[in-house]
Every structure is written in C-alpha cells, then in structure tokens.
Amino acid sequence: MEPKDRVRTPRQERSMKTKTAILHAAIQIFSEKGYHATNTKEIAAAAGVSTGSVYSYYADKRAIFLDAVLLYNREFVDRMERELGDIDIKVEDKRTVLPKLIESLINAHQVFKSFHNEMKVLYYSDPVVRHLMDEQYERSREMTVRHMYHWGDELTLSDPEAAAFVVFEAISQVVDMLVFSKVPVSEERIKKALSAMVESYLMSPDESEHEEKVSKG
C-alpha cells in the first residue's frame, strides 16, 4: 500500500484538531529551518504527536508543505477581505482610500510572515507551490481591482483594466519590500509617496486638483 493510500481525512473534532496542530507545527519549523532542513519527525515532536500519526494525515513532507500553503492563502485572503471590507470606496475620497488599500496589503502579509519567505524559495522549484501562490496573488489582485472599479467614470484612463494591473503591481512590489526587506526611507514616507504616485496616475489633473481642495476643506 502506497503512503498516500493510508492517508485519512479527519472527520471527528479530535482528528481535525490533531491535523491542525501538525500543520501549524510544520509552518513554524519550515519558517525557522527551511523546507529542506525539516523532517517529519521534528514536525511530529513539535505537534506533540507520533511520527506515525503525521503519516496518517499526510503522505510525506511535501504534502504537509502544500497544505500549509493552502492555509496561508486562506488566511491571507480572509484578512485582506476583512481589511477591504472596512473601506467604503464609494463614499471616501481617493486620498483616504489609497493609503487604506496599501495598508490592507501590508496587514495581510503579516499572516505567517516568516513562512512566506520559504514559500518564495520553493516557488521557483516546485510547480504546484508556484501554481498555489499565483492563485493567491490573482485573488488579491482581483479584490483590489474590484475596489478600484467603484470609482467608475472618475478614472480618466483609456484602458482601465491594464491600468488596474499596473497599479496593483506597483503597490504589491512596494508592499513586499516594506514587509520583507529593509528600506532606506521610513515606511510612512514610502507609503505616502506610493499613494501620491498612484493617485496622480489614476486621476486627471482637474480631478486631482478638486480632490486636493476637498481634502483641505
């Protein structure tokens, strides 16, 4: 019998808790030691279960890692949806909304932050990890674009769809640097500059001038 044939799907509450404990322990160790330096015995010990118990839920270490990526994706998107849900983009002006959009992405990245680095390592070597991460990225992009489209006719762009992609890419790249790298300028100054750049790109000069007057009262 192959290992994957012995894997069972937890149905009782106790079994589900055990699998969750295994998964969270794995994420912690993957984050600390890296995927390749981690083994199932260490994961079992951290989860407080036997190695055999781990194999009753997962065929191998890679299966655990892929499940961890799925958990990361769910938590990331859920947090981003909660953050964006607090923004009334139809009512608030862009000078208020854009910083909140940026902040929502920054906050969403706090989910299993250290694990994200290991995901990026395997992104280039494991096609399934790459596919799962690309799916999560696309969902995040769609949520951001959906919020931007509430501005409708206020966007003076010949190709709003392409513009939305460019804006999300710009925000996403800067956010990644703020979350995962050291930057030579303060975070608040970078976020302010990013908001100003996106605002000037999306709005006509007349609209931008109007927004500025409104913001100054």
Rank of each mutant, 00 (worst) to 15 (best):
P3T: 05
K4R: 15
V7S: 00
V7C: 02
P10N: 04
S15A: 14
M16Q: 13
M16R: 13
K17R: 14
K17Q: 14
K17D: 05
T18R: 03
A25V: 00
A25C: 02
A25H: 05
A26V: 01
Q28G: 06
S31V: 07
S31T: 07
K33W: 11
G34R: 03
H36C: 10
H36I: 12
T38C: 07
N39F: 00
N39I: 06
A44Y: 01
T51I: 08
Y57S: 01
A59S: 09
A59I: 00
I64F: 00
L66F: 04
L66C: 03
D67W: 01
V69F: 03
L71T: 13
Y72H: 14
F76N: 12
V77C: 07
D78C: 05
R79Y: 09
E81D: 10
E81P: 03
D86T: 11
D86W: 10
I87P: 03
I89F: 14
K90E: 13
D93L: 02
D93G: 05
R95E: 09
R95M: 09
T96E: 10
E103S: 11
S104A: 15
S104N: 04
L105D: 11
Q110S: 14
Q110I: 07
V111I: 11
S114G: 02
F115H: 04
F115D: 00
F115V: 02
M119Q: 07
K120I: 14
K120N: 13
K120C: 10
L122Q: 09
Y123P: 01
S125D: 10
S125K: 11
S125H: 08
D126R: 09
P127Y: 06
V128F: 05
V129P: 02
E135H: 15
Q136F: 08
Y137P: 06
E138S: 11
E138W: 10
R141K: 13
E142P: 13
M143S: 10
M143K: 14
T144E: 08
T144C: 13
V145H: 09
V145R: 07
H147R: 07
M148P: 00
M148W: 08
Y149G: 02
H150G: 12
E154G: 06
L155I: 14
S158I: 14
E169Y: 09
S172P: 03
Q173A: 15
V175Y: 01
V175M: 03
V175H: 04
M177G: 15
L178T: 10
L178P: 10
V179A: 05
F180D: 11
K182V: 12
E187P: 07
E187W: 01
R189Y: 08
I190V: 13
A196R: 14
V198H: 06
E199R: 12
E199C: 04
S200W: 07
L202S: 03
P205G: 07
S208F: 07
S208Y: 06
E209C: 06
E209R: 02
H210V: 08
K213Y: 01
S215C: 05
